[in-house]
Computed example of a mutant assay.
Amino acid sequence: MRRLPPAARGPLSAAVLDLVTAGPPDGTARPEPAGGGDPWGEDHQLALHLCYELHDRGLPGAHPGWEWDVGLLGFRQSLEGPFLAAVRAEAGPVPPLAELVEGMLTATGDGGPSGHLLTEGERWQAREYLVHRSVYHLKEADPQLWLLPRIHGPAQAALMTITFDEYGAGRPERAHALLFARMMADLRLEPSYGHYLDAVPAPALAVVNLMTLFGLHRSLRGAAVGQFAAIEITSPPGAARLAAALARLGAGPDGTLFYREHIEADAVHEQLVRRGVIDELTATEPELAPDIAFGIAAAGAVDERFAAHLLGHWRAGRSSLRSALPDGPGGAGRLG
């Protein structure tokens, strides 16, 4: 399915779209810097996502030369600064790295959205959850690949081992992005990349924007390690809940394979990321420990905002998307 440009959500995202779809860059474009708005807001997060997509799959109708246009990079900086400041404020004082890692290993709770879907979720909520997560999982691990040339030695080797698994460990049909697409199709969702971008709200975009922000900046490589570690260490329990929830709601084998794969894979990755990446990296570069801790705290803060958005809307019987799916609130409870 052919990708279409998303709709702007305000002057910032409109400026990006107008610029990159007008033709190739000529070196003279200088968008007005962002300032004064809400860095968590729809316009700010979409504008940042659009800038980042120029480094990934590109934007429909955009000349590839815009990726490194100086004027657009300056505009992107004006988006990144307020977002990073807002994340730091949301994360608050960051505990020591060892304390954070131990907390992730021993965490208990109701499981957030995955726990809700397991115990009381409905069909429309499960489908919405996959739409939100498609913004990341259809390009699984791509943002973390920016890390590979920025760490070296045993830590780099361990990170490469983890990402090799994310892309199917030599078997293209087992690549996690493809498994997610198959899951979407099983749940009667459109699995093409970027299809639901207009429907996905700012809290979900912020989760992915944080990954790319950390990955693109060498100065934030410690934070990128922390964010990646948070995913790998905490995901097995959530994956188990989601696989069980989708099975409860009638998903077929393709509809649970992605999460079943993550129950086992991320249990192994948790060991690798702790011992092979974090321990090895901090042994040679101990000054990175506070940055890694910040990455973990930042990921948790942004994930909590996303979870609060989902649960707040679902418990009120409202769609959590900007535009509800056809099988929206009030629809049947099972996927079959």
Score class of each variant (00 low, 15 high):
82 P>F: 03
10 G>D: 08
47 A>Q: 04
273 V>S: 11
208 V>R: 04
180 F>W: 03
151 I>P: 06
237 P>V: 10
306 F>V: 08
258 F>E: 00
152 H>W: 07
13 S>M: 04
306 F>Q: 10
261 E>D: 11
114 S>M: 13
213 L>V: 12
99 E>I: 02
36 G>L: 11
173 E>S: 13
159 L>I: 01
141 A>L: 02
307 A>C: 13
303 D>N: 11
1 M>C: 14
32 E>F: 13
179 L>T: 09
229 A>C: 11
194 G>L: 01
56 D>M: 07
244 A>I: 08
50 L>H: 05
330 G>Y: 05
221 R>L: 02
236 P>L: 07
320 S>D: 09
276 G>D: 12
253 P>M: 08
211 M>R: 11
287 E>V: 11
11 P>A: 05
111 G>Q: 08
269 H>F: 05
258 F>M: 01
78 S>E: 09
322 R>T: 12
307 A>P: 02
246 L>D: 00
228 F>M: 15
70 V>K: 04
319 S>M: 04
297 A>T: 02
255 G>F: 00
256 T>N: 01
47 A>I: 01
123 R>L: 09
24 P>E: 10
148 L>N: 05
205 L>A: 11
51 C>N: 07
118 L>H: 01
274 R>Q: 14
305 R>H: 10
262 H>G: 04
295 G>P: 12
142 D>Y: 05
194 G>D: 01
150 R>Y: 00
150 R>S: 13
130 L>D: 03
92 G>V: 07
101 V>K: 12
320 S>K: 02
334 R>A: 12
206 A>N: 05
84 L>E: 11
5 P>M: 05
262 H>C: 10
60 P>D: 10
268 V>Q: 11
136 Y>G: 07
235 S>L: 15
293 A>H: 09
283 A>E: 09
